[in-house]
Computed example of a mutant assay.
Amino acid sequence: MDYTQLGRSGLSVSRLILGTMNFGTETSEQDSHTIMDRAHEHGINFFDTADVYGGGRTEEIIGRWFATGGGRRDRTVLATKLYLPTGEWPNDSRLSALHIKRACDASLQRLGTDHIDVYQMHHIDRNTPWEEIWEAFSVLRQQGKVLYFGSSNFAGWHLALAQEAARARHLLGLVAEQSIYNLLNRWAELEVLPAARHYGLGLIPWSPLHGGVLGGVLRKRKEGGASRGDSGRSVQTLAKHRETIEAYEKMCARLGEDPADVALAWLLAQDGVTGPIVGPRTVEQLNGSLRALAITLDEATLARLDELFPPPGPNGAKPAPEAYAW
């Protein structure tokens, strides 16, 4: 396993991140425990979850896995998230100081641990001032309940606001931003990725296969297998980009690589990316994702991927504002 620093922090994390959203919903508790054990066997030490996954059950499953001992908690860099509603009352969501305190304590209890390594805001809260957020976060850090803080689904402007507010309080601020980023959705390249690089945040892509569309969905159809790309919003995405996906899968076949592995390898090759989140439902899916670490995409392949999946903006392959202006 390859490791890297999480942003400008001194924290070392694996270049593949285990996503746990399926635990307790798509994946049984026993299988979830097996997946986490296998992740450690492969050297994956960075686990991502959230207080709302499985209605809180996902965190409980992870907590019971920690409780089995064997150094599992000590070997894990644990990240969870808050923001989304965990109840029906007004302060059961968002980023007020009250909800931050309650949400953190509830996650710690479900996870069966005394601290969270990376506590992430699941979304921007436009109604809570940054002074309040950083004060509440500072209390958690002083109490030893949280070590680092991160964000998710922030715009570049939001990252700048967060970091400048932290700087004014002489705080480390955010160390990571978790953003949707993949070959089919490259909007992060306009402002989020440049802002993350500027402020020393590691970028953690979620949905690296765009709901399974980049995971070889057409090939799996021909083989009679099931795919995430055959359900939900992925059906519309595939219909819209079918010719591109066909060309992509043909290119991957010529390379002798699985489309999912190429999609992950492309993210790993992007400057500023810490590592993509892989959310396996089975041990086999986890094992398969490791191949991406061994793939090196040459310049011709990267150029072909840019042709198939152009960067956003009429001027392409440039950050804002050059992507859409002179």
Rank of each mutant, 00 (worst) to 15 (best):
Y3N: 10
Y3S: 10
S14F: 11
L18R: 02
M21G: 07
F23S: 08
E26K: 15
T27H: 07
E29Y: 00
E29T: 12
Q30F: 00
D31R: 06
H33S: 04
H40I: 07
H40P: 01
T58W: 08
T58M: 02
I62T: 03
R64E: 08
W65H: 02
A67W: 00
G69M: 02
G69Q: 01
G71Y: 06
R72I: 03
D74V: 01
T76V: 11
Y83S: 15
L84G: 06
P85M: 08
T86H: 03
P90H: 05
L95A: 12
A97M: 08
D105T: 11
L111C: 10
D114G: 13
D117G: 02
H122C: 06
I124Q: 09
T128R: 09
W130R: 07
I133F: 09
W134P: 13
E135F: 05
S138M: 01
L140P: 13
K145L: 12
K145C: 12
L147E: 07
F149R: 04
G150Y: 09
G150F: 07
S152C: 14
H158L: 01
G173I: 04
L174N: 03
L174R: 09
L183H: 04
A188P: 11
L190R: 13
P194L: 01
A196D: 04
Y199Q: 01
Y199D: 00
L203I: 12
V213I: 12
V217C: 06
L218D: 00
R219C: 00
K222G: 09
A226F: 10
R228D: 15
G229K: 07
G232K: 05
A239Y: 00
E243G: 00
E249I: 00
E257L: 13
V262T: 02
L264Q: 09
A265P: 11
G279D: 05
R281W: 02
V283K: 08
V283S: 05
N287L: 11
R291A: 15
L293R: 12
L293G: 11
T301C: 08
P311G: 15
G316I: 09
G316Y: 07
A320W: 15
A320F: 15
